[in-house]
Design a protein around this nucleic acid. Structure first.
Lengths: 191, 191
DNA sequence: CAAAACGGAATGAATGTTCATTCCGTAATT
DNA sequence: AATTACGGAATGAACATTCATTCCGTTTTG
């Protein structure tokens, strides 16, 4: 139980960045230590091993993202407004934690994730599935498996995030609004 | 120029599968050799090293995919028909080379890709960009950066492919048709 | 035509390197 | 002064790559 929380967070921040940029296997402990300006051994004071570190990170951000999506969720509004809420929160979350969503997505399903990480992740999917299922009942959302719709929204959004991070696109208000519109047209029911 | 092409292809097939499933860094040469039923040393008879192997694979499938998209491309048709062509070919390519698109996508931008691989990849993007740019001029495609639209189509499609491979979804005719419709609605211009 | 010699393909044990993890002397904190 | 935190060299395991050897189809020789 460290009295000084800073080192632990430095390590987590560096690990998040490196895992997102290079992937788990291509990121070495000495790399993380160097980036966090910490001795390699210090990492083992806070995390039992590399797998515990990556699972901690994964669960932390899945949890945080879930919280962000659920907070002030407009339970009673139309699917369009609910979609707007979810999309906005996705953007906000990305702004606050630059690499987090990309890290989650690229490391989801990986061999080193433990039971608990997998469970938490499927619980995140559930939020989106519930939104879509309810929208389909109301006839506001396209009749397609929710998993497929989530794939389209999330896949598209994360691909976009990558382009913005690599500075091939700029995250202007216009662009984000346009992408929201485009994703909404992908999932909504058309007459 | 080997007289027997089989071993080289066995190696390439195994490498594609393993790179797609586990990623470049988590895939070891002995793993590939084992899967291909070949001695580890044999791999070095055909490929100078692991990086050359992955670049060969990458370029091969980017090239093949490009060829598949361009063949019989309906240059004179409407954007809708052109989109249908591209989407169909994407599906067909995935059927013929189970892991290829996912491998390309997950390894694009990786640190071990050489200049030539990167060049080939951007040339693949160009095909899609030209289609979208022309469609925008005609007012049939949404006014959004082509890169962003490509991200939405490709991101969504590949996310979907993953779900199908992991058997969370079944690739029925209905599903593919629905997804095509959904992606088209994401990129087309709405009145 | 049989037998011996040849040569390239294939192998997997051996090599050197890189990594995750441990260990221990030093610095900071109480 | 004792306890805890830290750093980075040390360790052993796992890896990519190499290499001496085997294998096998073809060619040469007697």
């Amino acid at each position: 139980m460290p009295t000084n929380r800073t080192k632990r967070e430095d390590i987590l921040d560096s690990a998040l960045k490196l895992f997102a940029e290079r992937g788990f296997d291509a990121t070495t402990i000495p790399m993380i230590a160097g980036d966090a300006r910490v001795g390699a051994g210090t990492i083992y004071r806070y995390f039992e091993n590399k797998e515990v570190l990556v699972n901690t990170l994964f669960q932390h951000y899945v949890q945080a993202f879930k919280g962000m999506l659920e907070e002030e969720y407009p339970q009673e509004s139309s699917s369009r407004e609910q979609f707007h809420h979810l999309f906005q929160r996705m953007v906000q979350f990305t702004n606050e934690h630059e690499h987090a969503l990309y890290f989650i997505k690229t490391h989801n399903g990986a061999y080193f994730l433990n039971e608990s990480s997998r469970k938490q992740f499927s619980c995140l999917w559930k939020i989106l599935r519930d939104f879509l299922d309810k929208g389909k009942e109301r006839g506001e959302i396209r009749q397609l498996p929710s998993l497929a719709l989530i794939a389209i929204i999330f896949g598209g959004f994360l691909e976009l995030e990558q382009l913005i991070r690599s500075e091939e696109l700029e995250a202007s208000r216009d662009l984000l609004h346009g992408v929201e519109e485009s994703c909404w047209d992908a999932v909504r029911h058309h007459h």
